[in-house]
């Protein structure tokens, strides 16, 4: 009896053991956290902290920032778990750990959920539960609202989903002050308004990829011309919004200059994208807008960081 049950059960157990055997290296698990996105999360959250006057202990601030980073990484991991099927057919994402077969989907799910729960609880214990609740909402919004719902159902996916990527400064401000103020809301609005021109510029270049994966990005649904027009509209809104910190008094002289010059740069490139619609020049200028949009956002936030973090703040008014 025992031999018979062994012979029936053993092959199944063995195949499960083989199927469940992780092929992933530490670097593969790290890649699941989307390190580049995580850097952006840390960077924008850090700026959210430094523009908010508080007397929180530096170690508490550091651990809060670390937990916001881990929460951001966890949502990236859960996004990769959910999107493994479409990642496999897009050249940009086919080498990610799950489609490459290095990490099992179940492993990624467990990893992402563990990090999500852990980061929210630790942030709540270390700083406050408002910040923890906002971090939990950010993860929920990115994974459930954006990845599971919007991404495959509407061309407005990255517009609404962009809120998740814009929330870190608000979470960070809540972590060090215990409340949410206008300055972090303005930083949220800048990232939120920056997201459509940034991603649609990439989508214009990679529309074939998105088409193959069946993702309704704006160029595939509304067409490249409509996308170019919408990029221009969002950039026209973004450029003055980028200067709002100056008006509100937390962007100094250096920030005023950078945001003015950068805003004009964004507008000039968006106009070029709108005008050039055919062939290689159209693709090249869309690529340039994508690249410049990263530099623009980086410079805005880096300037605020330098002004507030290193004592270089010189008010423009008064």
């Amino acid at each position: 009896m025992s031999t018979m049950s062994n012979s029936l059960v053993q092959p199944q157990v063995e195949s499960l053991a083989t199927a469940g055997l992780s092929q992933g290296d530490v670097s593969d698990f790290f890649a699941l956290l989307k390190p580049r996105v995580m850097f952006l999360v840390v960077f924008t959250a850090l700026v959210g902290m430094v523009v908010s006057p508080s007397n929180v202990h530096p170690i508490v601030a550091f651990v809060s920032l670390l937990m916001i980073a881990v929460g951001g990484g966890a949502s990236g991991c859960l996004n990769m778990w959910w999107d493994a099927d479409i990642d496999a057919v897009m050249t940009r994402t086919a080498k990610r750990p799950i489609p490459a077969g290095k990490i099992q989907p179940g492993e990624a799910l467990a990893f992402g959920v563990t990090l999500s729960v852990g980061s929210v609880i630790i942030l709540g214990l270390v700083s406050n539960w408002l910040a923890a609740g906002l971090l939990a909402f950010t993860i929920f919004f990115y994974v459930v609202v954006y990845s599971m719902w919007l991404k495959r159902s509407t061309p407005q996916n990255i517009v609404i989903g962009g809120a998740a990527g814009a929330l870190p400064p608000i979470v960070a401000q809540a972590a060090v002050t215990g409340h949410v103020a206008w300055d972090s809301v303005v930083l949220f609005a800048i990232i939120f308004m920056w997201t459509p021109p940034h991603f649609w510029a990439l989508a214009l270049v990679k529309s074939g990829d998105y088409q193959r994966a069946g993702i309704p990005m704006m160029p595939n649904v509304a067409g490249p011309d409509s996308t170019r027009f919408q990029i221009l509209v969002y950039t026209i809104l973004l450029a003055p919004l980028g200067m709002a910190p100056v008006v509100l008094g937390f962007g100094g002289l250096a920030y005023a200059i950078i945001s003015l010059v950068g805003g004009f740069g964004m507008l000039a490139l968006a106009l070029q994208v709108y005008r050039l619609r055919e062939g290689e020049p159209a693709m090249r200028v869309a690529q340039q807008l994508f690249g410049f949009s990263i530099l623009y956002l980086f410079l805005l936030f880096a300037t605020l960081l330098v002004e507030h973090g290193f004592g270089f703040f010189r008010p423009v008014f008064g």
Binding site: Q10, E14, A17, T18, S22, Q23, D25, V26, F29
Partner: peptide
């Protein structure tokens, strides 16, 4: 029994990866 078998079937590369995961944990 199954566990021992799966251990035996690990290649040196798989063992190296598992060790690196354990160390990271």
């Amino acid at each position: 029994m199954a566990d021992r078998k799966s251990h035996q079937s690990l290649t040196p590369e798989e063992q190296k990866r598992r060790r690196s995961r354990s160390l990271a944990l």
